[in-house]
């Protein structure tokens, strides 16, 4: 696993008349789970969009190690993304979906990887030909994670991954994130769930109106600490 730092320097992003992000400077380190918090419209998803290379910053730059984060294909292969929509084809089965993406990513011995991955996310006992659209939200999220991990990405991005999961599913996901962190992957997740953040995050970023309001790294956070940081950072000053 690489030890490259994902660094944002003075990044700004505008959409027409709206400034979504302003002067954002952050560093995400491998082996950490970074949680990006903030009220709605604070720019969390915009930030994730920039990190995924699907959109480009209007100002500033984003680097991975000493490489500029670009939208070119070798860079895209280093990124795994799990959104709140699963990002898979509902008409294909779990295995077919993974097979498609394995072939698009050029994964050698794809079938074995797929078997391992299905077992890991607990979808190996699902009926082989069942289309993904018949899956529950939890199963879809497992499939989405399998798809994002299939090509061993250096960076893992999550957009509110636990939003549609039941407590058991959320606990499972937290375990997976922990596992990825320990494997030395760089994990960034955008979330509203402060308690879940406390359970897994070692790096908390709070965005407010497109700016970094708090940026803290600790060995671990308690739920109360996260709540305190969040409230302090998002309090309206009069």
């Amino acid at each position: 696993m690489s030890d490259r730092v994902l660094r944002l320097e003075n990044v700004g992003k505008t959409f027409g008349r709206h400034r979504a992000l302003a002067e954002v400077s952050l560093a995400f380190v491998p082996g950490q789970v970074a949680a990006v918090l903030g009220p709605n419209g604070a720019g969390k998803s915009t930030l994730l969009g920039l990190l995924s290379t699907l959109s480009q910053p209007s100002r500033g730059r984003i680097t991975l190690g000493d490489e500029q984060l670009s939208r070119h294909s070798p860079m895209r292969a280093k990124i795994g993304y799990v959104g709140h929509e699963p990002g898979v084809y509902g008409d294909l089965s779990a295995r077919q979906n993974l097979r498609l993406f394995a072939s698009l990513y050029g994964i050698a011995n794809g079938e074995r990887c797929i078997d391992e991955m299905l077992a890991r996310v607990g979808l190996d006992s699902v009926r082989r030909e069942a289309a993904a659209r018949t899956f529950s939200r939890g199963m879809l999220q497992r499939l989405a994670l399998a798809r994002a991990l299939l090509h061993e990405p250096e960076i893992l991005l999550f957009d509110e991954p636990g939003a549609a999961l039941d407590p058991a599913g959320a606990a499972w996901l937290a375990g997976e994130l922990q596992h990825e962190r320990e494997a030395g992957r760089l994990v960034v997740l955008v979330t509203h769930d402060l308690a879940a953040t406390a359970a897994i995050a070692t790096h908390v970023v709070v965005l407010r109106r497109g700016r970094v309001a708090r940026d803290e790294t600790r060995a671990s956070f308690s739920a109360d600490e996260v709540r305190a940081i969040y409230q302090e950072a998002t309090r309206e000053k009069s």
Partner: peptide
């Protein structure tokens, strides 16, 4: 638009 954003930025700061 640029100016409006600059004003917003100044307020944000």
């Amino acid at each position: 638009v640029e100016l409006a954003i600059e004003i917003e930025d100044a307020e944000g700061k």
